[in-house]
Amino acid sequence: MIQLKNIEKYYNNKSVKTFVLRKINLEVKEGEFISVMGPSGSGKSTLLHILGMLDTASSGEYYFLDEQVHTMPEKRLTGLHKAFIGFVFQQYHLIDELTVYENLETPLLYQKIKSSERQSMVAEILDRFNIVAKKDLFPFQLSGGQQQLVAIARAIIAKPKLILADEPTGNLHSDQGKEIMELLRSLNEKGTTIIQVTHSEDNAAYGKRILKLRDGWIEN
């Protein structure tokens, strides 16, 4: 599904290159659950952002479903990313001014899904995540765990093939964290590919494969 060849990311700082990622070669098959680990500053999040097409690599090749992402124009990129990828963040990143229902609806609006279909999709996901009662609440009225639940629901509502999770449990206490991890595992079992970044060994253990990064290099 994903192929990275010699991906590098660096910033030019007064003509000195500061590397974030070095010669990353990675293949991700459909249905995988990968945990990316490593100390702060090792390039985990950058890798995730490049995978999610929120950031571009400085050099190297990136193939997503056999398409060349590294040469793709911005518009196609947005299209690809909104059709196939869902994001989960440590800080949840719900839109504060929208209710739970409206937050869930937003990605569907960008995919130009019809109103009636949208309604049923949102209703289905609310039901599946057991948050029907919360649909008219605003994010600040929810606990952290509930917000992350909504964020995951929003990430998967358009049925993406790939979920990218950047420390999804980082802001939660352990019970809530566990709940979220179980949820990701069950999504993976139903066929969604998941790549998560995490600090915790426990959470990393949910993944089927662990990728360790250090100073931008993949450790073997």
Binding site: G52, L54, E74, K75, T78, H81, K82, A83, F87, H93, L94, I95, D96, E97, T106, P107, Y110, Q111, R154, A158
Partner: peptide, 16 residues
């Protein structure tokens, strides 16, 4: 800005 970021992540393009 946060809203802009989220919307972009959720699939909005610049013109939207």
């Amino acid at each position: 800005s946060k809203e802009v970021g989220i919307r972009k992540v959720l699939g909005s393009n610049k013109s939207q």
